[in-house]
């Protein structure tokens, strides 16, 4: 296991937000995380990278990444992890790059962070190699560019180059293509897949777009309001969702519903419960179309079949 997390809970100002997340990522695997805004998926990423802001605290029974115990990691361990075995790319590449520094400065910074003691000249050569790796033409000229001279897709490629500079074992991609055009999105997703195949790193791909997850991930976990409500093989989960929330998400997509054009789509009523709000029983109960008295009890993850790793947080 590259990453294993047991019972991760995150509190915001003492109020529970993320509630008992248990999941793992195996080497070379792509784990897709699907959820709407405010379901806590970004907060989990921040916790994994040790970047939670003040007032937000994480606790867990176990949290281990790349054979490092994250619960006991000190500042030095974290720094070594972040620039080394773990890397993260963000939704908006433009704001993740420093607008005042050239690509060369920023890329070399990542390279030197990963390989201390490297000479400036070989760092530059390494930067060129990385740009080439992420499919940027005329790498030499691009090194001199400032971020505002780059397109969104180009900037995201450079973020990826910075992330892979240290040959990470685990990359967390938080909505990496949401700000990009569809054709560029397709290219970036393909690039991530190539890098994963070549280096054998594991990837956590967070997206609100089931299509993206379906295309890239091996396993998927669906998050709703701070909990994982369903997890399993991507194909199975999307083809026959067990949890009513997953079912609603899949059906809400016009291309997938199989409904005739211009007909009303099936929707999930209401809106997401604020993540810090307490709900008695199942957190999806108030939006669910099928409820009974059992829903008033807190739901635990159940296996769909004895020999499957498919799980759902619903008793039906």
């Amino acid at each position: 296991m590259i990453l294993s997390v047991k019972n991760l809970s995150i509190e915001i100002d003492g109020k529970p937000a993320v509630r008992g997340l248990t999941f793992y990522v195996a080497a070379g695997e792509v784990l897709g995380v699907v959820g709407e805004s405010g379901c806590g998926k970004s907060m989990v990423n921040m916790a994994l990278m040790g970047l939670l802001p003040d007032g937000v605290n994480a606790s867990a029974e176990q949290m281990e990444a790349c054979s490092v115990d994250l619960l006991r990691a000190g500042p030095r361990d974290w720094r070594a992890l972040r620039g080394g075995k773990m890397a993260m790319i963000f939704q908006n590449p433009m704001s993740a790059l420093n607008p005042c520094l050239t690509v060369e400065r920023q890329l070399k910074e990542s390279v030197l962070q990963a390989r201390t003691g490297m000479s400036r000249a070989s760092a530059r050569a390494e930067a060129l190699r990385l740009l080439d790796r992420v499919g940027i033409a005329h790498a030499g000229a691009r090194l001199k560019s400032y971020p505002h001279e780059l397109s969104g897709g180009m900037a995201q490629r450079i973020m990826i180059a910075m992330a892979v500079a240290s040959a990470p074992q685990l990359m967390i991609a938080d909505e990496p293509t949401t700000a990009l055009d569809v054709t560029v999105q397709a290219q970036i997703l393909q690039l991530l897949e190539e890098i994963r195949r070549d280096t054998g790193m594991a990837l956590i791909l967070v997206s609100h777009d089931i299509g993206v997850i379906e295309q890239c991930a091996h396993r998927v976990q669906v998050m709703y309001s701070g909990q994982i409500v369903e997890s399993g093989d991507v194909g199975e989960v999307i083809a026959s969702p067990c949890h009513p929330y997953t079912r609603g998400l899949v059906a809400a997509q016009p291309g997938r519903s199989g409904l005739p054009p211009k007909s009303r789509l099936t929707t999930i009523d209401g809106s997401v419960i604020p993540i810090t709000e307490e709900v008695e029983g199942c957190r999806f109960r108030l939006r669910c179309s099928r409820t009974d008295h059992r829903c008033e009890q807190p739901q635990r993850m159940r296996r769909a079949a004895a020999n499957s790793y498919r799980e759902s947080r619903c008793h039906w």
Binding site: E36, H208, A252, P254, R264, L265, T267
Partner: peptide, 11 residues
């Protein structure tokens, strides 16, 4: 908008 909300607005 989120996916499930998109569907509501389309409707």
């Amino acid at each position: 908008l989120d996916v499930s909300v998109q569907a509501q607005i389309i409707n």
